[in-house]
Each structure stands twice: as C-alpha cells, then as structure tokens.
Design a binder for these strands. Structure first.
Length: 580
RNA sequence: GCCAACGUAGCUCAGGGGUAGAGCAGCUGUUUCGUAAACAGCAGGUCACAGGUUCAAAUCCUGUCGUUGGCUCCA
C-alpha cells in the first residue's frame, strides 16, 4: 500500500469514528429532550451520519437546534469513549426499554460478541470504532429530518431520521456546505429551465416537455448513437406504442410488471402502453425464420416508453414516467455472448469517452434466488460475463443475487452533482424471453435452436443521460451538443447586417448560430451568452467589419482575438464534426 | 406508496386575517456603446385546486393535486 493510500485510509477512519461518535452524542441529546423516544440505529455515512428514532411527533427545525445545542455541550465536556463486551442476557436487561435494540440483540447470531459503547453520560449497543472522546468530534451540523422505515422494510415502523454531517474542522465543514451549494447550482432541473431545455407541468406529472433547445440536444445524442450503430452493426426498427394485453401476458409483464404499466380498454379489449421494447422485438424476430448465418441480429429502437412510477420516487429527468432509450436487443447464440458483450462495452467506452464520463462504476449482478432457466445456462452466462469483465482489466463489483430473474447483467453507474449514482448503461442476458416467444434459429446441423436475447442500452434513458450530462458539465455542453454554438454580438446596430452575413456562412457550414440584435450594450450581450453557456461569442464592430473578421471569445473567458470569418467557420465546423 | 416541508407574476423570492409586493425576464421608448448586467416607462397574479371557519381568507382548518428531501421500489 502506498503512503498516500495509507494516509487517505487514515482520514477515512478518523472521519468514520468521529461521525459514528457524533451519532451517539445526537441520540443522547434526543433522549434528553424526548425521554420516551425509541432509538434504532445510527451509523456514519460517506459524508456524515444519521440516527433513527421513533418519537410521538416528528422533529421540527427548532428541535434540531435544541439537539445541536445539547450536542455541543457534550462535545465540550470531552467525555472519553469506551466499549465493553457483555453477554446476551445482560444486554437484553440493559436495553429492555428499547424495543429496537431488543430486536437487534435477539437477532444477533449466537457467537456474535455483544458490545456496549459509552461516553459516560450515554451508552449504546454498538459494534464500535469511536473517537477517543466526544471532544474529537470536530465541526458538525444537523442537516435534515426524513422518514425511514425500520430495517428498510416498508411494512415496518416509519421512524424519524436525523441527518447530520461532521468534519475535522470548521473549514472542512464550510467547504462541504459550499460543495452542496455548488451542486445545487449544477442541478439539472435548475439549469434545464435557465437554458430553456425542458420543463415540467403538473398536467403530465413526472413527464418532461422538451423545448426546441432541449430537443436539439436529444437529437444530437441520438444522431451520435446512430452513427455508432453503423459502425457496430445495428439495425434500427420502429415498433408500436400500444399493444393488446395478449403480448404482455406472453412476455410476463402482465404478471410481473402490471403495476408499472398504463392500461386502457378500447373496443372492449384491454391494451397496455409499452414500458419496454423487448416483447415487440421478439415479435419482430419471430415474424421471420432465421438461420445461424444471420446471427447475431441487433435490433435498435428509440421508441418512447411509459412506466407508471410511484409518486415520491420521481426526480427531475433522472426518474420520469415517460422516456426513450438507446435500446437494442441482440439475438445471438450462446457462443456469441462474450463477443457481443465485449463489442457493446467497446462501443460504450467510445461513447463515454467522447461525452467526458470518467467516473463509471461497473457492477456484475449474478443469479437471484427466484430465476428461470437451467443451472447450466446460468453457469455459461455468468462465466461469459465474468470473462468479459476480467478482460477489460477494470475494477467491478460482483453482486450475488442481484441479477434479473431472466439472466445476469452488467450495469454502468455514473454519479450526479450530489454524488448520487444513476444507472445509465446496462447489458442483460435473457433466457426467458426466447422461451416465452418460442424464438428459434436453424443451426448448422439443421436442428432448430433457441437464441439468447441480450438487452442493452448504452446511454440508457436519454432523459436521465441528459440530466447527468448537464450536472457533469454544469450546463456547458460540448459544442456539438450545444443548442446555440455561436452567437454574433454586434457592437452597434450598424454592424447587424455584417453579423447576419457571418451567421449565414456559419449556418451554411452546419453551425447553429444567431445574431443578438437586442439594444443591450455589448457587455450585457456577452453576459447573456455566458449565462446561456454558448461556446463562442463573436463580437463585430467597425474594426472587424472593415477587415472581414470576427473577434472570437470563448465561454471559458478566453479571448482568441480577431479571426478571418472563413477561418473561424472552418475551425468551428471541424470542432463540431469531430465532437471535440 | 410512506414520513416531512413547500406551492404568491415566466423565473427567484418577500408578505402572513382588512384592496397583491420586489428583483430578473418581457414589452415600449431613449441610448449605439469594445469583452459578464445602460436609463426610463408599461404590462404582468382566481396567491396550486376544492371545501370550511370568519363581517372579511393569499394568510387559519380539512381534503386533493403537484414539487422537494429522505425511505421503500427501480423488469
């Protein structure tokens, strides 16, 4: 282990202990104020801590202030932490008034050591790792109250969770709070409005309306994906939006996904709006006979999907009720799985590199308890995916039991501005769909064989992808995705005709450009363009007009000086075409 | 779906039982300006929706819808 790594781990450990200790001190304060409170658990988190309580009424902001005050007293008193091991009966006795602790103790395995950690004025059932004393807790702040189910089970008690954050020093705490504020400035919902990309209206809850500018971005993304599809051998198809429920019964969605579907009765028959493309692609495949020579067949579909999501789970563009994906289904032989997944990951890497996504987490999800298919199929499929993952030479997590019931999968996660992870890409093997739709191909020996289906999406939901992209770039999208790529800023009205000429040249070269003809001063026009994150601002005044040039300013603030109009047109068109 | 908070002009927000406010954006006029905000005027709201209390409700109460932060879910 490197020295650098060791010191990073040390910081993580110090923070873990400090935050874990802060949780204890907070519980002590809550019990002082609410003696009847039932306490649940209070662990440290990535940047803070929380503790769950069952109380007669929800906490108010005033309560948080009082709790903070009591916590400061305990921290100031600098009470030492110590842990002791006790036996089960003693533990049950000691926490007999605390039903959640009793439940925890009862559920601990027989050979598990039971410890109690105390900082003198308070003690808690706890596995430990604490600061030496309460004085080591540093700068902290209570952030919010939220409901949380006991043991994460929606059928159990709803508890009140208090979230807090704690850092070694006030400076660190301030820096953390500043990071949160910066993340809020990057919030895609806020930028989506400011940049005129999209908005939401209660008339269609959790369903975005894309304005012309937002639609340009989506279309550019799709155009790019289609370009990759040519290179990687995909065929685009177009399928219906609404299907008779016979399809959903055959695919299994009627039994397993009905609560997420929009259903309707027409002509005394029941129809469902598609939440996924796969059944339609199975119908497409089954419409013809297929030879092994044709495989793999890759059907791509940008069709719009609708999924009813429970109220309370939707979030801006990240989780919506209607969206489209760069979805495709690959019909292949078992032997082709590895190469197909490999090829998909190569394409995904290519796209993510172009889009500037670096922090990707990959997770391999393996067979769940409830599943279809034979053990041999699962063995082969998991082996194929594992082999592919290993061959990438990159880190990935293998998660037992997290696979879909129809096959194992690899998911690709990218964080948003606040560090919350969203699944974008996915590649999933499916043994169920080919069975349900009796899909076949003629093998080399003339026998009829069952293909495997690979579900895969690279960007995933285009809406979610755009949301993450906006947060990553703080709205300064790469030039090829920018709705307006260059804006002409005439210094006085007499320069507008020249500006229009330049814009015509830019547009002829495929550049999205416009003239700011308003009566604002140049400074205000520049500011407006900066706020809109337009990549290039082209100032034209007497000097430029006379010389047939434009004064080029980049949104980064860089001044490239005066350039010949043709030179700039060539340069910017090149930049756009290469997706630089 | 659950817990909580919030919903006032296009946006960001103030007001909090007695005739609806600001900034920005918009429109009009003046200004024609050299790299992040010229000046003036005008217009803009069933205070989410529906009930209730009251002489009087944006304000208090109830419900509904929506949004936000969590939880659960995420084939």
């Amino acid at each position: 282990m490197s020295t650098q790594q060791a010191s990073a781990d040390a910081i993580v450990d110090v923070r873990y202990r400090m935050r874990h200790s802060a949780a204890h001190v907070m519980a002590e304060a809550v019990i002082k104020l609410f003696p009847e409170a039932q306490i649940a658990i209070g662990p440290p988190t990535d940047d803070g801590f929380y503790y769950d309580f069952e109380v007669s009424r929800p906490f108010t902001p005033e309560d948080l202030k009082k709790i903070e005050k009591l916590m400061r007293e305990t921290i100031k008193a600098d009470r030492p932490f110590s842990g002791v091991s006790i036996d089960r009966d003693a533990a049950l006795e000691r926490f007999s008034e605390q039903k959640f602790k009793v439940e925890l103790i009862t559920d601990l395995p027989d050979d598990e050591e039971i410890t109690v950690w105390s900082h003198q004025s308070w003690e808690d059932l706890c596995a430990g790792r604490h600061a030496d004393s309460t004085g080591k807790i540093g700068a902290f702040k209570l952030l919010s109250v939220a409901g949380a189910y006991w043991r994460g089970d929606e059928n159990r008690e709803m508890l009140q969770r208090i979230y807090g954050t704690a850092w070694e020093s006030q400076e660190e705490l301030d820096a953390y709070l500043e990071r949160i504020e910066e993340a809020e400035r990057r919030d895609h919902r806020r930028l989506g409005r400011e940049l005129d990309l999209f908005f939401f209206d209660p008339i269609a809850p959790a369903s975005p309306f894309f304005l012309p500018k937002g639609t340009i971005v989506l279309n550019e993304l799709v155009d790019y994906v289609k370009q990759l599809y040519v290179k990687y051998g995909y065929q685009e198809v177009t399928t219906p939006q609404i299907f008779n429920t016979d399809l959903w019964k055959q695919s299994g969605h009627y039994d397993n996904y009905l609560e997420n579907m929009y259903m309707m009765d027409v002509d005394d028959r029941e129809f469902g709006v598609k939440p996924m493309n796969c059944p339609a692609h199975a119908v497409l495949y089954a419409a013809n006979t297929h030879s092994y020579r044709e495989l793999p067949i890759r059907y791509a579909d940008f069709g719009r999907l609708h999924r009813y999501e429970r109220s309370g789970v939707t979030h801006g563009l990240m989780r919506v009720r209607t969206f489209s994906q760069d979805d495709a289904h690959i019909f292949a032989t078992l032997d082709q799985i590895a190469q197909e997944v490999n090829s998909f990951i190569a394409m995904l890497d290519e796209a993510y590199a172009v889009l500037g996504f670096e922090k990707i987490r990959m997770a391999l999800s393996l067979r769940p308890e409830k599943r279809v298919g034979t053990e041999e199929m699962w063995d082969r499929a998991e082996a194929a995916l594992t082999e592919v993952m290993e061959s990438t030479g990159r880190e990935y997590g293998a998660e037992e039991g997290e696979g879909a019931f129809y096959g194992p999968k690899i998911d690709f996660f990218v964080p948003d501005a606040l560090g919350r992870e969203w699944q974008l890409g996915t590649v999933q093997l499916d043994f169920s769909l080919p069975e349900r739709f009796d899909l076949q191909y003629a093998a080399e020996d003339g026998s009829l064989q069952r293909p495997v289906v690979i579900h895969r999406a690279m960007l995933g939901s285009l809406e979610r992808f755009l949301g993450v992209l906006i947060e990553h770039t703080a709205g300064a999208l790469p030039i090829w995705l920018s709705p307006v790529q260059a804006t002409l800023i005439p210094i006085a009205d007499r320069h507008i005709p020249f500006g229009e000429e330049v814009v015509q040249k830019l547009r002829a070269a495929g550049v999205r450009a416009e003239v700011d003809t308003g009566s604002d001063r140049m400074g205000a026009k520049i500011r407006a363009a900066q706020v809109q994150k337009i990549p290039y601002m082209l100032v034209v005044g007497d000097r430029e007009q006379e010389a047939g040039k434009v004064a080029v300013r980049e949104r980064s603030g860089g001044d490239l000086g005066a350039m010949d109009v043709d030179e700039f047109v060539t340069r910017v068109a090149e930049e756009i075409n290469t997706r630089a």
